[in-house]
Simulated assay, not measured.
Amino acid sequence: MANKITSGPFFVPLFIDGTSNLPVDRLLIGLKNPTNRTKTVRVTVERAEDFLFPATSLESTILNQLVSLPSENWTVLRIIAGPTTFQGDNMLRVNVEGDTDEESDGIEVALFGGNDGRPTVSMVFKHEDFIEVDED
């Protein structure tokens, strides 16, 4: 596994929008293999709990999943909000390492955070929103 992309850090809002009291209750990570060969990636989600400067927070891994997708197949990883996963005001970062790239030669990724099918705009990422990680 050589390629790695990341969402970069993003905040989980307390509520899905400014007009409701619906908390963010899930993070969905969609994976699509548009190629003609089986592809494999490792998906990790890191969390930093509430902190304000000058305080700092260590990150913890709330998901570490190896996913192998046959040609032209899809799957979705789901993380439900909770005390051992994530809550509002936490920071998250999604990393996908392995058979991924920008030219559709590997697995494509999309993120969706929200409640009951209603998205939280700050937690919606299309594949092209991810950035490549240079680990040199």
Score class of each variant (00 low, 15 high):
42 R>S: 05
43 V>E: 04
43 V>S: 00
44 T>M: 03
44 T>R: 08
45 V>I: 02
45 V>Q: 02
46 E>A: 05
46 E>C: 05
46 E>M: 01
47 R>L: 04
47 R>V: 03
47 R>Y: 00
47 R>F: 00
48 A>M: 14
50 D>L: 15
50 D>F: 15
51 F>T: 05
51 F>Y: 15
52 L>D: 10
52 L>F: 13
52 L>H: 10
53 F>D: 14
53 F>Y: 15
53 F>G: 12
54 P>E: 12
54 P>M: 10
54 P>N: 08
55 A>Q: 13
55 A>M: 10
55 A>S: 12
56 T>R: 10
56 T>V: 12
56 T>L: 10
57 S>F: 07
57 S>Q: 14
57 S>M: 11
57 S>E: 12
58 L>Q: 09
58 L>I: 04
58 L>C: 00
58 L>W: 06
59 E>N: 05
59 E>D: 10
59 E>S: 11
60 S>I: 13
60 S>H: 11
60 S>C: 08
61 T>P: 03
61 T>E: 15
62 I>R: 00
62 I>H: 07
62 I>P: 10
62 I>W: 08
63 L>K: 03
63 L>I: 00
63 L>N: 07
64 N>R: 06
65 Q>I: 05
65 Q>C: 06
65 Q>M: 04
66 L>V: 14
66 L>T: 13
66 L>Y: 08
66 L>H: 09
67 V>F: 05
67 V>K: 02
67 V>P: 05
67 V>L: 01
68 S>W: 09
69 L>Q: 04
69 L>A: 02
70 P>W: 03
70 P>I: 03
70 P>C: 06
70 P>Q: 10
70 P>T: 07
71 S>G: 01
71 S>I: 09
71 S>L: 13
72 E>A: 09
72 E>H: 13
72 E>M: 11
72 E>R: 13
73 N>E: 14
74 W>N: 13
74 W>R: 13
76 V>L: 04
76 V>G: 01
76 V>K: 02
77 L>N: 01
77 L>P: 04
